[in-house]
Design a binder for these strands. Structure first.
Length: 220
DNA sequence: TAGGCCATCTGGTCCT
DNA sequence: AGGACCAGATGGCCTA
């Protein structure tokens, strides 16, 4: 596979080789004082073989000088290239770490029945909603405890693990399977600040549950 | 085949 | 100066 970068680098490598004889404005400004070619210095082409020979040696010397500088520029180029490669490597590792973090986040979220892997954005939004739902559960539990009224069910019917430590993904959580038998999803919001609501029966209605019912990506 | 998702590269900017 | 972070570009893979 030839990536754009490889192409670029191959180009760069070629260009670095070409530096030796590439005529640049910079070179002009720096060499005009002492490396003007004989032709340009006298304003006319060399007339005799001797002149020609002299020009040849001058050119060779000039090329040598240019080669010397090219080596310098080539070195700089190599340094730049290695620096870029190191930066790419760090960036790759950084993104891998980010993905690892996302994976660990996925692992503590309830598993979907069909074991569909959440996308990155879905994972983040799902986690946001899940945290919100757990917070609401705790808040309602506190309220109930303070009012001493524990008649009505706090959690969604069959929601056995929402108050416990999140089950690892793959370790099938009863919440995931039982949620499908929960009350019908009468609530769905696009407001990211309120991903869940309490329905008329006091049950916690979350977007998460809604998605379990319908697998509607739009709720994310 | 179009569109979504993802990995990677890259250059710019900010921070230490 | 060098690393971290970020956003844009690009190309590959997969799915409807």
């Amino acid at each position: 596979m030839c990536t754009a970068m490889e192409t670029l680098y191959s180009d760069m490598d070629n260009s670095s080789c070409d530096y030796s004889f590439t005529h640049t404005d910079d070179e002009d400004s720096r060499s005009s004082s002492h490396t003007a070619s004989p032709a340009s210095s006298c304003g006319k082409p060399p007339a005799s073989p001797a002149d020609s020979l002299q020009e040849t040696t001058a050119e060779l010397q000039q090329k040598k000088r240019r080669r010397g500088r090219a080596r310098k520029q080539g070195t700089v180029h190599v340094v730049k290239k290695t620096r870029r490669l190191k930066a790419n490597d760090r960036e790759r590792n950084r993104m891998h770490n980010l993905n690892d973090a996302l994976d660990s986040l996925r692992s503590v979220l309830p598993a979907f029945p069909d074991d569909t892997k959440l996308t990155k954005i879905e994972t983040l939004r799902f986690a946001h909603n899940y945290i919100w739902a757990l917070s609401e559960t705790i808040r309602i539990a506190d309220q109930r405890q303070s009012t001493k009224s524990r008649d009505a069910p706090l959690l969604l019917p069959g929601l056995s693990c929402i108050g416990e430590a999140p089950s690892p993904r793959g370790n099938s959580c009863s919440w995931a399977s039982s949620a499908s038998s929960a009350s019908s999803p009468s609530y769905c919001t696009s407001d990211p600040d309120s991903p869940a609501a309490i329905d008329d029966f006091g049950y916690l209605q979350t977007d998460v549950v809604y998605r379990y019912h319908n697998f509607v990506p739009s709720i994310f």
